[in-house]
């Protein structure tokens, strides 16, 4: 069936099976490969995208559940000012190593700051607890989100 939604600020209509994973629609149909698959069961968060500004695991979301909603992937988010602030904070603090969790981590970090512009370390850790990283030990990412919050993510 035809699924209509807004993808990275553009209205799209995609004719696929309604049970198809949002992740597969993004990667295989739209060729937006910035969204990664790390586990396929909602544990790692590498597939994080924003649906109506909330971070979700696109590996668990059937495409029908974004009908009429707004989806932002890293490809859309990287055009924003908020991305510039967050990504430069990640660079300054060493928040990205292998890079596989990074697009999802950056989107989740944005969602944290959108809800809570000045989070404590603990609030950052709790809010990002659905995104796993095997490289950094997380400290650098906490520092990066902290730094981005100091610089201010303009929404």
């Amino acid at each position: 069936m035809e699924i209509k939604f807004v993808l990275n600020h553009k209205q799209v209509a995609i004719d696929v099976n309604p049970s198809m994973r949002l992740l597969d629609v993004l990667r295989d149909v739209c060729h937006l490969t910035g969204t990664k698959e790390g586990c396929g069961e909602g544990e790692c968060g590498a597939c994080t995208v924003l649906v109506n500004d909330e971070p979700v695991n696109s590996c668990l979301m059937p495409i029908i559940n974004v009908f009429g909603k707004e989806v932002i992937t890293i490809e859309g988010f990287r055009e924003t000012k908020a991305y510039k602030v967050i990504s430069s904070a990640f660079a300054d603090m060493g928040g990205s190593q292998c890079g596989f969790c990074t697009p999802g981590m950056i989107l989740a970090s944005y969602a944290v700051l959108r809800k809570n512009p000045h989070p404590t370390d603990e609030e950052i850790r709790i809010a990002l607890s659905g995104n796993l990283c095997r490289c950094t030990g997380y400290q650098a990412i906490v520092n990066a989100v902290k730094l981005a919050s100091e610089k201010g993510v303009k929404l």
Binding site: T33, G99, P103
Partner: peptide, 12 residues
């Protein structure tokens, strides 16, 4: 490799 990895442009 910061920019390519953060922006999702790095090709795995």
């Amino acid at each position: 490799d910061n920019e390519e990895k953060m922006s999702g442009m790095a090709i795995f």
